[in-house]
Each structure stands twice: as structure tokens, then as C-alpha cells.
């Protein structure tokens, strides 16, 4: 209990068989995984907290992916003493991919609702399609971003985002969007297999586009019922495929 890193919300279990490091989407912190179980099969669920949000709000957020990946890999080093995988949703998938390329011997990368990092930013990100929830674009005004953030809060929490939180949420989100749009890496293989998770009602990223990840590494594709935010509830089908693909 003596060693505490702010990258992790809690100390990983000393007896875990394996670990699943989880990266949140843009604008939010590690607490978005609070509805996930503590374990999925042999994997202990370990959400990562990035600087600039929640209990790390006093630290400046990252401006680029390579710096994030190097720092995160260094912080996780003490916890890589057993098999592990990395999960990311939307921007979290791009973070997860960057992180995995810095880690020694990851077993698997799970990516949900995200186009590939090696597509140019203007191809990777689109203006929100009609009916989509939780899609942001840097060309959106503060008012448009605020309206969308509130829509996500209503969808996820059943209530509007509290007005006290709007400026904070927008600050984090704007930083994340700029970081995403400034990122144009070449195709970078992961050195481990990938599982993709597309969602039938995802109005932003179609299951077909998830297929492009096979250019990065050998890939197992999955399509689950749900929309862009369904993963927050860790549906049983998602847990099953995570466990099954991890066991190979």
C-alpha cells in the first residue's frame, strides 16, 4: 500500500493472474469505468488516470501521444510482471495503440469505436452524424461542445451536466481534441494481436471501418449490439469476448 501512483485509481491486486489497462475516451477520467466489474475472467480491470482530469486536474494534460505513451509505459513498469492487455474506446483506442507500441510483450490490444491512428486526422474524425451522441470535432464552437457534453451526461447519468462542471469539462475536452487532431503517425504495428469491437448502432464509427485495424496487426473482429456509449455498462457479450480473445 506504500507505493501510490496517480496513474492508477487503486493499487492492483497482488494475486491477479493478468491485467487489463483501460483508457477512457476524450474529455473524461478513469471514473467512467466505474460500472465495469473488477475482473473479467483472469484479467483485473485497471483504469488509467491521465493528467488534467479528476484527481489529476492540477497537472497539465498531454499535448501529444508519444509523450503520453512514454510516460505511461514508465509508470506502468512495476505492474507488467504478469500477462497484460490494453483496452481503449474512441480516443482511448488511439491512446491504447500508442501505449502498446511502447510496452514490452503486451498480449493483446482491444479497440472499440475508433478509426485507425494512421488515417490522417481529417479522415479519422468527422463532424457528428445526425443521431450520434458523444462525437466531438475541433471545429465545433464552445456552445456546440457544451450541448454535446450535456447530451452525453444525460445519456450516461440520466441528468444534465451540472453547470459548475461545464467549464472544466470543456477545458479537458478541447485539449484532447487538439491532441487528436495534431496526431498523424505512420502505420505502426503493435507487435501483439488486436481485437476490434464495433457497435451496430454507432452513428460515428461503422463496424466496417473497424476492419481497417487489420492493417496494423492480426485482428479478430467483433460487432456487438449497442451504440457509442454501450461499453460503459460492460455488457456480458463484451466481457465474454475480452476473456475469450485473451485466452486465445
Amino acid at each position: 500500500m506504500s507505493h501510490r501512483t496517480k496513474w492508477l485509481l487503486r493499487n492492483p491486486a497482488p494475486d491477479a493472474e493478468a491485467r487489463l489497462f483501460c483508457l477512457p475516451y476524450s474529455g473524461v477520467g478513469a471514473s467512467v469505468f466505474r460500472r465495469w466489474p473488477t475482473h473479467i475472467g483472469p484479467l483485473e480491470v485497471v483504469p488509467l488516470q491521465l493528467p488534467g482530469r479528476e484527481n489529476r486536474i492540477g497537472q497539465p494534460g498531454y499535448r501529444d501521444f508519444p509523450t503520453f505513451a512514454k510516460d505511461a509505459a514508465e509508470a506502468l513498469e512495476p505492474y507488467l510482471d504478469r500477462p497484460y492487455a490494453v483496452f481503449g474506446h474512441c480516443m482511448g483506442a488511439i491512446l491504447a495503440h500508442a501505449l502498446v507500441t511502447e510496452l514490452p510483450e503486451p498480449q493483446r490490444l482491444y479497440v472499440s469505436s475508433s478509426r485507425v491512428p494512421h488515417w490522417a486526422p481529417d479522415r479519422r474524425y468527422r463532424m457528428p452524424a445526425p443521431g450520434s451522441v458523444g462525437v466531438y470535432h475541433p471545429s465545433m464552437t464552445e456552445e456546440q461542445l457544451a450541448a454535446e457534453v450535456s447530451r452525453v451526461a444525460r445519456t450516461v447519468g440520466g441528468a444534465d451536466l451540472h453547470p459548475d462542471l461545464v467549464p472544466l469539462a470543456l477545458r479537458v475536452l478541447r485539449g484532447d481534441l487538439e491532441m487528436c487532431f495534431g496526431y498523424a503517425p505512420p502505420l505502426t504495428p503493435t507487435g501483439c494481436p488486436i481485437s476490434t469491437i464495433g457497435w451496430t448502432d454507432d452513428a460515428d464509427v461503422s463496424p466496417d471501418e473497424m476492419g481497417v485495424w487489420q492493417e496494423v496487426a492480426p485482428t479478430t473482429h467483433h460487432v456487438l449490439p449497442g451504440d457509442k456509449l454501450t461499453f460503459l455498462e460492460a455488457p456480458a457479450e463484451l466481457q465474454e469476448l475480452i476473456e475469450k480473445d485473451f485466452r486465445g
Binding site: 485509481l9 487503486r10 477520467g29 478513469a30 471514473s31 466505474r34 488516470q49 479528476e54 484527481n55 486536474i57 492540477g58 451526461a153 447519468g157 441528468a159 451540472h162 459548475d164 462542471l165 472544466l168 469539462a169
Partner: peptide, 30 residues
């Protein structure tokens, strides 16, 4: 630690409101 024990931003806002009511002090969420 509040976040380690399952806290999140909406609950932090409730701390803020209770502090306003019970102690008359306004604490920014950040």
C-alpha cells in the same frame, strides 16, 4: 481518496453544494 473509492465529478458537485449549505463556503469543483 475520493476517486479511488468510486467518486466521480457529479458526486463532487454534491460535496460542493453541501459545503455551501452547511458551512457557507463556496469551493470551486476543481
Amino acid at each position: 481518496d475520493f476517486f479511488t473509492l468510486g467518486g466521480h465529478s457529479l458526486l463532487a458537485v454534491r460535496i460542493r453544494m453541501r459545503l455551501q449549505r452547511d458551512h457557507g463556503v463556496t469551493v470551486p469543483p476543481e
